[in-house]
């Protein structure tokens, strides 16, 4: 029973850590708008944390630039299991307009397993909420399988 409570809580209190790997800030602003009174992701338990150690969901925005690659890898490694990685916007996975640039090391899939990707440039806050909700469900599944 205790296990079940924990499994259920997993989906209800996902904490988010946001990494910007060279994004244009569009996605970052939209992610922040998700916690504003209008969208208020906190009603579903989402919370922005300040450190990867507290995070359940890591939101990555931006194509992985060569400057940010090392930091991204290091930070991702520090997130405790179970964790879900969300790619926000068009940049992290197919690199969007930065495809083939000398300074872009993407796609993100090279460095970790991406669980959810939210498309859009930038995604609407509603889409981000959908994506995070999906991520929370995946989190619960991951916890259950363990």
């Amino acid at each position: 029973m205790f296990k079940k409570i924990i499994d259920n809580s997993m989906a209800k209190s996902p904490w988010i850590y946001h990494i910007n790997t060279g994004s244009c800030n569009g996605c970052d602003i939209e992610l922040v708008s998700v916690i504003t009174p209008r969208y208020d992701a906190e009603r579903m338990g989402f919370k922005l944390t300040g450190t990867p150690r507290h995070a359940d969901i890591v939101v990555v925005s931006g194509p992985v630039t060569s400057q940010s690659k090392e930091r991204l890898v290091r930070t991702l490694a520090q997130v405790p299991e179970p964790r879900v990685i969300v790619s926000l916007g068009s940049c992290p996975r197919p690199c969007n307009v930065f495809k083939g640039s000398y300074s872009v090391e993407g796609p993100l899939d090279k460095f970790c397993e991406v669980d959810v990707s939210v498309a859009g440039c930038t995604p609407k806050p509603e889409a981000i909420i959908d994506g995070l909700a999906l991520a929370a469900q995946i989190l619960k599944e991951k916890r259950r399988q363990k």
């Binding site: 205790f2 924990i6 150690r53 890898v73 290091r74 930070t75 490694a77 520090q78 405790p80």
Partner: peptide
Amino acid sequence: ASRGPVRRPVPADPKYDTFFGG
């Protein structure tokens, strides 16, 4: 049983490094 494992540090694994903002 129900709680996550307490991990001992593994050397040279960035997971156990101190967080310096990446």
